[in-house]
């Protein structure tokens, strides 16, 4: 076959697949979001945005992302740097650290629910050592910060490894000579991290952050397990519109709003971590 066309032929199946099962439904959803009573309108958007739960769910989603993603980034960087220095057992440690990735997010939420609920491990432990008199119900509307903390903890536990895997691969690509040069020219280990690792890791940081931030805006199952309706987020509202209120127009509008936020965040990340032309490894 003509070598000029071969690449296009090879990517055709996956392109076709994505068009049929992703692009087409997306167009349908977008169409649905802008349609009400048989005509094109912004009515669905007006409806969801003016709902009293919208500002709270938006705020919760953004707060969660703002609290969880930086902690995950710092942890993933720390873990990636440590694992990169290891001579032996590196793969074993990586496997162990990525175990949470193999668990579904709902299962992860239930695991942490088993810790935080009234008869859970945390209460039993505190009770056993005598810190508290009787098991307390932590995950209630009186303790919004505990709910928030529990969800954040579960998310950090569950999804740090996805960033870790990307950053480990990225750090491995940085030639050792740069660190030697930095050391000879007087950079401490910390300075080497700031001046060599971080800037040279920008492409991996972009990927890891974009992926993680998008997933953070889509948080659902962990919140459903730990917070239920106490802690509305954008995704749980979308679910409620679709399946509880049977208002698929509004659900579609919510989905588009989440998409818009994700795109905006992606653009900000790409812009902030862009690598100037000629400055790649």
């Amino acid at each position: 076959m003509n070598a000029r066309f071969l690449p296009y032929v090879l990517i055709a199946p996956v392109t076709f697949f994505l068009c049929v099962f992703f692009l087409y439904p997306f167009v349908l959803v977008a169409n649905q979001a802008f349609t009400a009573d048989g005509g094109y309108t912004m009515e669905n958007f007006r409806e969801v945005v003016s709902d009293w739960k919208f500002p709270i769910s938006l705020q919760n989603t953004l707060l969660l992302a703002a609290a969880v993603v930086p902690v995950q980034l710092a942890l993933a960087l720390l873990m990636a740097t440590m694992v990169n220095r290891m001579q032996k057992g590196r793969d074993l440690i990586l496997y162990v650290w990525t175990i949470p990735l193999g668990i579904s997010d709902l299962a992860a939420g239930i695991i942490w629910l088993a810790i935080f609920e009234q008869s859970g491990f945390l209460n039993s432990m505190l009770d056993a050592v005598g810190v508290i008199d009787k098991p307390a119900n932590l995950l209630t509307y009186q303790n919004p910060w505990i709910v928030f903390l529990a969800i954040a903890l579960a998310e950090i536990w569950r999804a740090t490894a996805i960033m870790l895997v990307i950053l480990v691969a990225g750090i491995g690509l940085i030639p050792k000579e740069y660190y030697e040069a930095a050391e000879v020219f007087g950079a401490s280990k910390w300075k080497q991290f700031l001046r060599i690792t971080l800037p040279l890791l920008r492409p991996s940081l972009q990927t890891a952050l974009v992926l993680r931030v998008i997933l953070a805006f889509e948080i659902f199952a962990v919140v459903a397990a730990l917070g239920g309706t106490l802690f509305p987020v954008l995704m749980s509202e979308t679910y409620a519109y679709q399946f509880d209120l049977l208002n698929s127009g509004a659900a579609a509008a919510m989905a588009l709003i989440i998409l818009g936020i994700s795109i905006a965040a992606t653009l900000v990340i790409l812009r902030a971590l862009r690598v100037p032309k000629g400055a790649t490894i």
Binding site: E180, A181, E183, V184, G186, A187, R195, P199, L200
Partner: peptide
């Protein structure tokens, strides 16, 4: 190394790709 009064030229140069020539020369 930094306290030995030395500087080094590496075989593969180890010129930092993310810094300009000016910042490379001025790194130390």
């Amino acid at each position: 190394p930094k306290d030995r009064g030395i500087a080094m030229v590496f075989q593969n140069y180890a010129v930092f790709p993310h810094l300009t020539v000016f910042e490379n020369i001025g790194f130390g």
